[in-house]
């Protein structure tokens, strides 16, 4: 079991299997996002209160949900790297940050666009909105910290530390609508029992959520692959993987 995990976490092994799985995930993501968008825009009824403006839900809710999931995954990878010094975990943490930042930005911008016609304001210094803005700053801070320190190991440790400290913000975002008198309504999706969204409107929302998930994995894997080649560029396996002819010949000669 442990040796299996150990092998799985070695960069060349990851490079090999991710090369197969990443394009598959990318295709799944593109298909889900395309179908979900067309379905959500054209084939769902209008909302009884908000009319057509509710359709922003299909981009806003997936982006907001995944902005939190990606952060948790990033902090988890950072913790694994700090404790066990597994290189691949740091590669993952570095690859998750830009995707998470993009999702957070989207959640904020689409939320603002949605808030104007429904609530009557682009922005309120409200608990939910402010804590999500802090999440964006955390992502940007983690990325800036990594690139501002010249020594890679030191940069990785500093970024990991900030990512872990920032985890306190995640439950604050999630429960802000219950703890404070927020303008933002409660969660539509995570409600158990009676779903808060009519079945005729729900399917494209689920498609979009899964589409964002596959987008995240495909995007983070392709980032991780580039990062690994960059870090291990002087190793033999990289030369072989990139099809360097001289290396192949040398290897053939050795045999």
């Amino acid at each position: 079991m442990w040796s299996f995990l150990h092998r799985l976490s070695s960069p060349p092994t990851f490079y090999r299997w991710s090369g197969v799985i990443t394009p598959i995930f990318a295709v799944i993501a593109a298909a889900l996002l395309l179908v979900g968008t067309v379905w959500g825009l054209a084939f769902t009824p209008t909302d009884y209160q908000q009319g057509d403006s509710f359709r922003i839900i299909y981009v806003h809710v997936p982006a907001a949900m995944l902005s939190l999931s990606v952060y948790m995954a990033m902090a988890f990878s950072a913790a694994i790297f700090l404790i066990w010094r597994i290189k691949l975990a740091d590669v993952f943490a570095a690859s998750f940050a830009p995707v998470g930042a993009a999702f957070t930005l989207l959640a904020l911008v689409t939320g603002s666009i949605w808030g104007r016609p429904t609530w009557g304001t682009w922005w309120e210094w409200d608990a939910r909105l402010t804590s999500e803005l802090i999440l964006l700053f955390l992502y940007l801070g983690v990325m800036a910290l990594r690139s501002s320190l010249p020594e890679r190991n030191q940069a990785a440790r500093a970024a990991a530390l900030l990512a872990i400290v920032g985890v306190v913000n995640v439950p604050i975002i999630h429960f802000s609508v219950e703890w404070w008198n927020s303008l933002h309504q409660g969660s539509t999706v995570s409600k158990l029992g009676r779903p808060a969204i009519d079945p005729s409107m729900a399917t494209p929302l689920y498609l979009m959520i899964f589409g964002f998930m596959f987008f995240w994995l495909a995007n983070a894997f392709s980032r991780a692959r580039v990062e690994i080649v960059d870090r291990e560029q002087n190793k033999r396996w990289v030369r072989e993987a990139l099809g360097d002819k001289a290396e192949m010949q040398r290897r053939a000669g050795e045999k």
């Binding site: 209008t46 009884y48 908000q50 839900i57």
Partner: peptide, 18 residues
């Protein structure tokens, strides 16, 4: 000088609301 509307987390078509 500012009036903001709150809404809840429920979404449904008008016919179902009726």
């Amino acid at each position: 000088d500012k009036v903001l509307a709150k809404h809840d987390e429920n979404y449904m078509p008008p016919e179902i609301a009726d």
